[in-house]
Design a protein around this nucleic acid. Structure first.
Lengths: 237, 237
DNA sequence: CGGCTGTTTGAGTGTACTCAATGAACGTGG
DNA sequence: CCACGTTCATTGAGTACACTCAAACAGCCG
């Protein structure tokens, strides 16, 4: 009986995320060469951690499905959500520098990831310049994103932070084929608050205010944007 | 008459920053191979910008001397200092992803940088795995650093932020052979405030409070730490 | 010296926080 | 399937920290 771990694998070249994920921008011949990048898949249930702070680094993870949060902890127990990640995005870049992950990655819903051993990334990107370039871009993108979050945390008020957060979330979902105006939030008020540097009560109050103003319709975690322009105006004024 | 741009160049292999900068961890034979990385040097005067947001990306910059700040701007004019960089640190990583720099890098004092054309980095790191690894680590380090700043901005109070800032600054200066307790601040209160998500008055008041408490001695930009343990306690409690 | 930039300090305000109670949704087990 | 406990969300009341506005002061350079 032929049956192995990889029997249900989908090659990068055949993955429906190839326009979004590692293979972005690669030629078809290059695409085939990176099919060997993914060693295995891994399934996670809600609340399971993909890796945690201090764990030995060995691989990056490409999200196939589901949503994650990453968080860092301070010595005295406080923690900070550093991002929410969705299909096609890469987790684990923080682990490269010290050979151990420096944050926790937690699934916010049942999820599946592609395991990409980092030594394969290094080997292959020496041979495939387009992959090398792509890896550099992924890391650079993360740096630019982080700088945007710093701007948000350092200089914006609660309403602006939430507006930026929602617009960003919707834009990324839209890029994945979902509605531009409707979203089922995978994260709690507390997690949103942690990400935005606010307390959960402030997140809740601000959402309520947006509802009063006719900008949003929020029913628990089901959220609909009624006036996207109003959100944009919040950010640019 | 023989006289060219590179006459006063110092090779990476001979640079006194080699324990701190790009060549970190390379073997001597590898070291020689990366001597070609630096195309030129560039001198900057105080307040000069090394690159600015939107400018075409072509090179990374290794700081040889002097201190820089990087800042990002929001659409409505506010800006946020995203970091202060000193000798041996690398500027320009944000430019890789979109082929243009996404922030401004400004010299806080007269400075000198090594210009490292990025295509050379990519070419050479395909041939020298240790360099490839090093580039990945530099980018990963920046990501981890940014996450730390997010933790600071998202969850710490003014006194803690300033304590973290000072400890980090002193630790980096110490690694460069300077005093662990004394520093001439190269940045204004406003710049510190922008970095820490505080107003300049709050920075000033908090420094004054640290003086009253006997933790610091501050005379304008000349700062001396009298009680380093007290600063550490601020952070961990 | 005057003008300028940067810093300090004060007074009053406001935004987001803490503490607290209520209510809604969800999952588990009887 | 319903009852229960638990988690999560909302809303209120009062507070605190950092903000704004303002004035005075120090240091620096031409």
């Amino acid at each position: 009986m032929i049956c192995n771990k990889t029997s249900n694998q989908v090659a990068c070249s055949a993955c429906n995320l190839r326009e979004l994920c590692m293979p972005v921008g690669l030629q078809s011949d290059e695409l085939e060469r990176i099919d060997g990048l993914v060693s295995t898949r891994r399934r996670l249930r809600r609340r399971e951690t993909l890796f945690h702070n201090g764990e030995k680094f060995s691989a990056l993870f490409a999200i196939r499905s589901g949503t994650f949060k990453t968080r860092v902890a301070s010595e005295d127990g406080r923690d900070q959500v550093t991002g929410f990640q969705m299909a096609g995005e890469i987790l684990g870049l923080d682990g490269i520098v010290s050979d151990q992950y420096s944050c926790d990655a937690v699934a916010l819903e049942d999820a599946q990831v592609c395991v990409i051993p980092f030594d394969r990334v290094e080997t292959l990107s020496r041979e495939v310049p387009a992959l090398q370039r792509h890896v550099h871009q992924i890391m650079s993108r993360e740096i630019v994103r982080d700088h945007g979050v710093m701007l948000l945390l350092g200089s914006m008020r609660a309403e602006e932070r939430l507006a930026v957060f929602l617009l960003n979330l919707l834009q990324r979902l839209h890029a994945r084929g979902f509605s531009r105006s409707e979203v089922l939030l995978r994260m709690s008020r507390e997690e949103i608050g942690s990400y935005l540097g606010l307390k959960l009560e402030t997140v809740s109050r601000t959402l309520s205010k947006f509802m009063e103003d006719g900008i949003l319709d929020v029913q628990q975690r089901q959220l609909r944007v009624l006036d996207e322009q109003a959100l944009h105006r919040m950010v640019n004024s």
